[in-house]
């Protein structure tokens, strides 16, 4: 609408290479976890059991149940430890204080007039919000991976069907997040912001 405004580049947060690598590892391992997870899903669909609808083969990874399990239980270490290392990193560098959603963002949404700031607030809300979902994917997955040895963890999820449902729901939520995160990221900082997370 306003040429002056669109030409003015928003500040692009400098990303450290360390964060770029972790971000890349999470993307790759997340998609491997989803593909192999849907392969495992198809052995007994969460919804409808043996009569339930399976996912199409192109969405799955591993070829058959054992192959899907190979990928899933191999990649889970990469996925979980990347998140853990990231958690330690944001704690040690105090990034959690300024890089994630804060009262400032909520204030910007409530009373703020600057549309750029509002989009940026949404951007921060969304990428902060995915973190508990990814942690939930790991916790519910662990509860299903070792339901006997970690019975205290499985017990938190009420019963097997509830546990499977919660674990599965992290898939559509993550995919929706990926989609929205890309769009809002571009809206908040243009492709420059997107590039800043991928380029070395």
């Amino acid at each position: 609408m306003n040429n002056k405004q669109t030409k003015k580049s928003p500040p692009v947060p400098p990303q450290t290479n360390f964060v770029k690598i972790l971000h890349g590892l999470i993307i790759i391992s997340l998609f491997i976890m989803i593909g192999s997870g849907l392969q495992i899903y198809n052995a007994t669909p969460v919804f409808g059991g043996k009569d339930g609808l399976p996912f199409p083969k192109w969405m799955t990874l591993g070829g058959w149940l054992a192959g899907g399990r190979n990928w899933h239980f191999g990649t889970m270490w990469v996925f979980a430890f990347t998140l853990l290392i990231y958690g330690i990193y944001i704690f040690l560098t105090q990034r959690w204080k300024r890089k994630f959603v804060s009262g400032q963002d909520l204030k910007a949404l409530k009373v703020g007039q600057n549309p750029k700031r509002r989009i940026y607030a949404w951007h921060r809300i969304i990428y902060t919000g995915i973190i508990p979902v990814l942690i939930m994917a790991i916790v519910s997955g662990l509860a299903m991976y070792k339901p006997a040895q970690f019975h205290w963890l499985s017990w938190l999820f009420i019963d097997w069907q509830t546990l499977r449902t919660i674990h599965f729901l992290t898939v559509p939520i993550s995919l929706l997040f990926v989609f929205v995160h890309i769009i809002i990221g571009i809206r908040a900082g243009g492709l420059r912001l997107t590039r800043s997370m991928f380029q070395p």
């Binding site: 593909g35 192959g67 239980f73």
Partner: peptide, 20 residues
């Protein structure tokens, strides 16, 4: 996604051998 999907079953078995 497509690349991973077309991975041969040998590669899938290797992932298992590596992480099991």
């Amino acid at each position: 996604g497509y690349l991973l999907n077309s991975c041969s079953s040998e590669f899938t078995a290797k992932v298992g051998d590596l992480t099991e």
